[in-house]
Amino acid sequence: MEKIVKFKPKNVGKKILLAVAGIFLLLVIFGSFYNVSEQEQAVVTQFGKVVATNSAGLYFKIPFIQRVHMVDMTTHGIGIGYKVDGNGQNITVDDEGIMITSDFNFVDIDFYLEYKVSDPIAYIYNTDDPEMIMKNIALASIRSTVIDYPVDEVITTAKGQIQAEAKERLTKALTEQNVGLTVVNLTVQDAEPPTDEIKQAFKAVETAKQGKETAINNAKKYESEQIPAAEAEADRIVQNAQAAKEARIAEAEGEASKFNSIYEEYSKYPLITKQRLFYEALENVLPGAKVIITDGNTQQMLPLDSFSGSSSDGDN
């Protein structure tokens, strides 16, 4: 005999209702909790109004009423003046990189901007595209800085100062605009003339600058070699002059002492001193002469030497 099974609509409806209730319960359970990682912050809203911001951890929310918006808080980077294609090659963006300098020249300059979210609520609700606004502000800040410098400084010596000033301006502007982003770092990647002709001209300028530096260094080297020699020669001349001075002073003092001693003797015995000085003077003037002292009447002396110069033997 065949057994007839009767279909009961009420049992099927009950099972479907239980299944829907189970699914809804699972959705409620799983939708009531959310996890925030170390690199994120969660912004919780209720009917469009922010009710909480949470850092890393596991949290509960009211399902279907509260919504959670995850915000990445790590540092990101974008290029200004260039973009990276799928092969990792840098492609110049002329509308961004070409800028004018204070001496009305053009320069192609690239920057790399590192940024991160500073205010998750402002980042989500204050603007539709905070990254685009930040990039436009960065371009304006960079152009306002580059235009204060001549082209040769932009390409060579002023890169560090330019990136510091541009970062300061960008940070201030982002704070005023309150887009929820902050600058981590802004660096000059490259700066060069925009055309080949200008590049060659700047290479010539750089070569001239290097020649200038070489000449200055050689001059400083020559100076460092010559100054010590000149100082040594000057010291030698001064020392010789000092020695000559001391010798002349000593000689003058000796002559003065000698004169004083003679004067003392003269003051005691004037006649004898005069005669002695006279004889000494004759000896100095006529060192080889024979001196004969007479009273003026004597014609001959013993031995018989004639005043006329003839000997006694000749008279005989």
Rank of each mutant, 00 (worst) to 15 (best):
M1P: 08
N11E: 15
F30W: 10
S32H: 07
F33W: 13
Q41F: 06
V43G: 13
V51T: 14
T53K: 10
I62N: 10
I62P: 03
P63W: 11
F64A: 15
V71N: 01
D72I: 04
M73T: 02
T74Y: 02
T75Q: 09
I80W: 04
T92D: 15
D94Q: 12
I100T: 15
D103Y: 11
F106H: 14
L113R: 06
I121D: 11
A122I: 01
Y123T: 03
T127Q: 13
E131I: 12
M132P: 01
M134A: 08
N136Y: 12
A138I: 09
R143K: 13
V146T: 07
D148H: 05
Y149W: 10
Q161V: 08
E165N: 01
R169Q: 03
K172G: 00
K172E: 12
A173R: 01
E176Q: 10
E176D: 05
V179H: 02
V179I: 15
V188S: 02
P194Y: 01
K203N: 13
A204L: 10
K209R: 03
G211K: 03
E213S: 00
A215L: 00
A215K: 01
A219K: 00
K220E: 06
Y222N: 07
Y222A: 10
E223R: 04
Q226P: 01
P228S: 00
E231I: 04
E233L: 08
I237D: 02
Q239W: 05
A243F: 11
I249C: 07
G254P: 03
A256R: 10
F259T: 05
E265P: 00
S267M: 15
K268M: 07
Y269V: 08
Y269C: 00
T273F: 10
K274E: 03
K274A: 08
R276C: 02
L277G: 06
Y279E: 13
E280P: 05
L282E: 07
E283I: 07
V285D: 06
I293F: 07
N297S: 12
T298G: 00
T298N: 02
M301F: 12
L304G: 10
D305W: 04
N316V: 15
